[in-house]
Design a protein around this nucleic acid. Structure first.
Lengths: 233, 233
DNA sequence: ATCCTTAGTGTAAAATTTACACTAATATCA
DNA sequence: TGATATTAGTGTAAATTTTACACTAAGGAT
């Protein structure tokens, strides 16, 4: 026990932390933001961005703070994933981690990530190395959750620009679900749901027919949800 | 700070607890096990069974221990629900709660629950009073989760006897989803999935045609899952 | 002007879902 | 013991949804 141990409790308490699985997409495979650890344990190993929960913040606020501090990212979709409480998950002492997953538009944040001295890098899912602590397990859980969720909640849009083409959207779903989708059926279905707003704008400077941009119409989606109509792919 | 405060930390730490939402079913409406608080705060208010997490147990082990200690229940389906971390959720001090939900065969445990001095009682969902702390919110989250989950995972069986009739199973789904289901279509679909084993045994001493009993064939279900065939109602 | 590449579109067949009503079995009651 | 009351158990046709599939349009590059 350190000398400057200021807080005393009658019963032993585990430490509380939050780790974030950040998914990004820029057209190819789904990506994950990882951070190289600077200290022991697991020095120089890749890990999820994470940190201890302050007394004045909820775990979600903590997760958002971590995203900002470690990757310069804010205002993104974030959702609680799972709480990991294995006793030996951290070799130093007992630390409970409330994990979150975030969906990030990679294009928008590519540059900002890793702005301070931290070594942060996007990894394609198939190229993610073995991670520090139980972070590989956390990532696995997050992928499962994302796959499961993407078919019945319109969260995929969070990974794209505000304006996107249907081809981009389809590529995203194919990347997440890891299976090919029929172009015509996909368009029929997704447009039929009535929450995609066709924009006037089209792609520019492409060496082929320019694709129309669409945006996700949150208001229309909300109205549909309230009518009991639910997204399903 | 009490005098016998034996554990010292450099940074302030919240306490860690676990609360359990136990769902039970005995044919009518879905039920919830609640416990009357004996102490302040919220003295004499109904609350979820809960308790602090020990250093030698995971949160799930803690939840199972609570089920056993407070309701005499063991070997039931349990799953992590959500972690509640609002700063003021407990008026005494900051307590993080990792909530779990459990599915219990009410018939099997009716008697055991409330065996010690605790006042424990099953409440029909529509008759659940306002609960202590943020427990009403936890219950709401649990109901949402159960409703969402029951359609694509065969967890409903956990609420029934090992042997059940199709009518019982249908009644359970109707109770959870809160909507009527067509008898013939329900049977066609659920039997078509191939994980219900028809037993020889039938109901006895009923004043009408005796219904056949079925059981959930875990092995068959596992095989189907591995083949990529998934439950869906 | 030709080529290359991706956008955008419809239809027919198959599969699934829905709506719906009568006979069978068994204890109870008159 | 026969009538009654109650729930079990079953099939089919129509509607809807899902699937499979191929060509023309547009735009920059050569």
């Amino acid at each position: 026990m350190k000398q400057n141990s200021k807080y005393k409790y009658e019963y032993e308490r585990p430490a509380l932390a939050s780790d974030c699985v950040m998914f990004g997409f820029d057209g190819g495979e789904l990506k994950l933001l990882l951070i190289e650890r600077e200290k022991e344990p697991f020095k120089n190993k890749w890990s999820l961005p994470g940190g201890f929960v302050f007394m004045q913040e909820t775990t979600e606020e903590c997760a958002k703070r971590i995203l900002l501090e470690k990757a310069g990212i804010k205002n993104v979709f974030i959702e609680q994933l799972y709480t990991f409480s294995e006793i030996e998950r951290d070799p130093r002492e007992r630390i409970i981690s409330v994990a979150y997953f975030a969906l990030v538009n990679t294009q928008q944040y590519e540059v900002i990530a890793g702005r301070d001295t931290l070594k942060a890098e996007w990894f394609e899912l198939s190229k993610v190395p073995k991670l520090a602590f139980d972070h590989s397990k956390i990532v696995k859980t997050a992928i499962q959750r994302l796959k499961g969720k993407v078919s019945y909640q319109p969260i995929g849009f969070e990974l794209l620009n505000e304006k996107f083409t249907l081809t981009q959207l389809q590529a995203l779903y194919e990347a997440i679900l890891e299976e090919p989708i029929d172009k015509r059926n996909f368009r029929k279905k997704i447009l039929g749901m009535g929450f995609l707003k066709a924009l006037e704008e089209k792609e520019k400077n492409v060496a082929h027919k320019a694709a129309r941009f669409y945006s996700f119409d949150k208001k229309a989606y909300k109205e549909l949800t309230q009518k009991g109509i639910h997204f399903e792919l």
